[in-house]
Design a protein around this nucleic acid. Structure first.
Lengths: 334, 334
DNA sequence: CGGCTCTGCGTTAACGCTAACATCACCGAA
DNA sequence: TTCGGTGATGTTAGCGTTAACGCAGAGCCG
């Protein structure tokens, strides 16, 4: 920086002002400084900057289960938005064991000079963790229920309503639900949306079956439903379970969508290639990440803290696995 | 830090020495300093440290296509190992468009004070990018071919050989291959391994079919193979294409593994739940990340630079989709 | 024309930490 | 006894940047 200042014949302070886009520098000086900076290949030293300003332009992201499609896409969205906003993204993954480890991970991030944190909080219990964070650290929760800190989430409830109503519109008498594990906010919200949609339409609400997000659990519940022989429409709480359901139906000879319609949730990239292509609810994880980041930057830069809970609308994607209810109920085939 | 020093009644320098585990501090003083630090909740300021030492204990990771299982798992492995080694991990994702963006992303990371970079280099062309990096920046390439910088990769070639030999051992006359897109190092290595294994066994090498990693492309090539009616063993270059192949076979009435055996590559979590459960080659992505990180830390901390190319062995996982060749070749069914 | 504001710069002093050297007490060897 | 060595600690300076203030000159108003 001293070199730049010397080359232009001004003080370091003036260079600093140009660097930060501050006013009180004549257009001409500004141009000459910029020229000198690029000529010398000058790069500001982030450490020195952080030291004096107390801000590092680095954000922490705590993510659970980074290998799943949803969290990974969200992370990607966050990173891109952060880069555009001029922030760096430092990551820390939680091992699934939970609880005690959270503190450790957050400690790790706090050891760094971090301007704010985005925490993926898919479990109901994570809300408790959020309470124990230092009050002066800007935080955004992603993918959880509205809690003590600003948050961004896909509207799971609405998505489930859309899925259920789609099936009802096709003429199905009712819709069966393979739910996600209790304790997950998204599983709860989807189940509630399904239940409410059925009740609003005056339909019978069959008992919800409970899976664990895995294709295997979807397969098991699918077998159960197929055996009962009275399901004509199934809404699975995620695409992997829907995949299991599809397989179970196929094995028991039920046609999809001829005999049974199936709808998933998430729209993972492979969903188009399931057999048949899966009707599902698309979550825009990238947008989720962006919104979350925007919320965090807003807190950090002290703008209005108006909207404490941002919601992303999911979207129904109709493919081949859902169709009109057949005229007569399907016979039990196995 | 001044507070800690005052509380103990020593100079800041002594506190600093304790902090860095330096000698020349009496055991008693050391203990008192540590006590004071925890009493005051003191946390060293990373920015000040980085400013004076020129090292930030932050690593950059450049990853392509972060939403795929492989890269995401690798990233997770890197992060965990880095945390244990006392480093922070700053990420930057490439958008798939490639080329020009690489420089931009690396620039972003260089703007931060970074001690080293791990670059995921799955394409053959990424090797060129590596040449243009500043020579003084420690770099490790992951998941590419041996190139100008130290690298860590899963031994794709050996994996493909294992898959092919597994099928030959089961008595199949030859093995068909649905390859990945050319331009990907891993696709090339897997194809080469398959080819060599067949040749070594003195078998006919059928032309390789080319997919694009997606389930859709696997489905198409699977239809083609099923139509030809003479394939009894298929090795798909990844699990998603294998999924497509399975579906195609199922639709055309070919039994798996009764009529046709199928083997994939990767061992994605859902592979167990494919129909039938997929025999595949497991890549330990977590280990890959760890090894890559170790290589980088070695460079940074100036230890021996002995092994410039580290290889992780993949592992055959036998499930239900592969079985003995049927006595008589299957009839063409469609 | 005095006093006011505004612009465009410069000067000084940190930010929190560590490298390098300085100091001092003590100990064993010559 | 003197001297060099060593272990424990302190002092000084500076890493690269920005906040806060200072100051001169231009322009404007009453």
């Amino acid at each position: 920086m001293a070199d730049v200042a010397r080359l232009v014949g001004v003080s370091e302070m003036t260079v600093s002002r140009v660097l930060n886009g501050r006013p009180r520098v004549s257009a001409e000086t500004r141009a000459r400084v910029i020229a000198a900076m690029s000529e010398l290949g000058y790069r500001p030293n982030t450490a020195a900057r952080a030291l004096v300003t107390g801000r590092s332009r680095t954000l922490g992201v705590v993510s659970f289960n980074a290998t799943l499609y949803g969290p990974a896409s969200t992370l990607s969205g966050i990173e891109q938005a952060a880069r555009e906003a001029g922030y760096f993204v430092s990551i820390a993954f939680m091992q699934p064991h939970g609880r005690g480890r959270v503190a450790e991970v957050i400690d790790h991030l706090k050891a760094q000079a971090i301007d704010g944190v985005i925490i993926s909080a898919p479990h109901a219990w994570t809300v408790k963790v959020l309470r124990h964070l230092p009050a002066d650290l800007p935080v955004v929760a992603i993918d959880g229920e509205p809690g003590p800190v600003p948050s961004a989430a896909v509207d799971q409830y609405v998505g489930a309503v859309k899925a259920t109503e789609h099936l009802l519109t096709l003429g199905h008498e009712t819709v069966h639900h393979v739910a996600g594990p209790s304790g997950w906010s998204s599983a709860r919200a989807r189940e509630q949306g399904w239940r409410d949609a059925l009740e609003r339409a005056g339909k019978v609400v069959p008992p919800a079956l409970r899976g664990d997000w895995s294709a295997g659990s979807g397969y098991e519940e699918g077998r159960r439903l197929a055996a009962s022989g009275n399901a004509s429409a199934i809404f699975a709480a995620n695409d992997h379970m829907a995949l299991g359901v599809l397989r179970a139906l196929q094995e028991t000879g039920a046609g999809v969508p001829g005999d049974v319609s199936v709808v998933g949730f998430d729209d993972v990239p492979e969903a188009t290639f399931f057999g048949p292509a899966l009707t599902t609810i698309r979550q825009d994880f990238g947008a989720l990440g962006q919104r979350g980041l925007a919320l965090l930057v807003e807190q950090i830069e002290g703008a209005s803290r108006s909207s404490r809970h941002v919601v992303v609308e999911p979207e129904l994607v109709v493919r081949d696995s859902s169709g009109p209810a057949s005229a007569s109920p399907r016979k039990k085939t196995s």
